[in-house]
């Protein structure tokens, strides 16, 4: 197993773990955390696999482009987390609930 595949598999494990937590936990904060773990997994896959681009001269040279992209992805994830937390705080202030309720079978 090459190093790239190792990190990609770790990333996929994080994605699956996050997806599982997103589905089973009702508390919204846990759902937000689960999404953050999922995005970390995706970023890890992106960075890990990009260490071995097909036409790179040195086979293990780091490719800077995915790092720039993942940086953008992190900004997006931070924005998503901020928006979600603001909405959750507001929902709790209004209703006292921190779950979506079971009206749609979450």
């Amino acid at each position: 197993m090459t190093q790239a595949v190792f990190w990609a598999l770790i990333g996929m494990a994080l994605v699956v773990l996050g997806l599982y937590a997103l589905i089973v936990h009702a508390h919204l904060l846990r759902k937000v955390l689960a999404l953050n773990i999922m995005s970390s997994g995706v970023f890890l896959v992106f960075i890990g696999l990009a260490r071995r681009t097909p036409d790179a001269d040195a086979p293990m040279a780091a490719d800077p482009v995915p790092q720039a992209m993942v940086l953008t992805g992190i900004v997006v994830a931070v924005a998503a987390t901020g928006l979600a937390l603001a909405l959750i705080v507001r929902l709790r202030a209004l209703t006292g609930r921190t779950t979506l309720g079971d009206d749609m079978g979450d």
């Binding site: 994605v15 997806l19 997103l22 919204l28 759902k31 937000v32 999404l35 999922m38 995005s39 995706v42 896959v45 992106f46 696999l49 990009a50 071995r52 681009t53 482009v65 995915p66 992209m69 992805g73 997006v76 998503a80 928006l83 979600a84 909405l87 959750i88 929902l91 979506l100 749609m104 979450d106």
Partner: peptide, 23 residues
Amino acid sequence: IRYLLVSVLGSLSYLLGVALLYH
């Protein structure tokens, strides 16, 4: 909130595809 969770989940799945295609 439900819309946000679904939307981010969908985007992440898309991004995972982009990562693999970039690879």
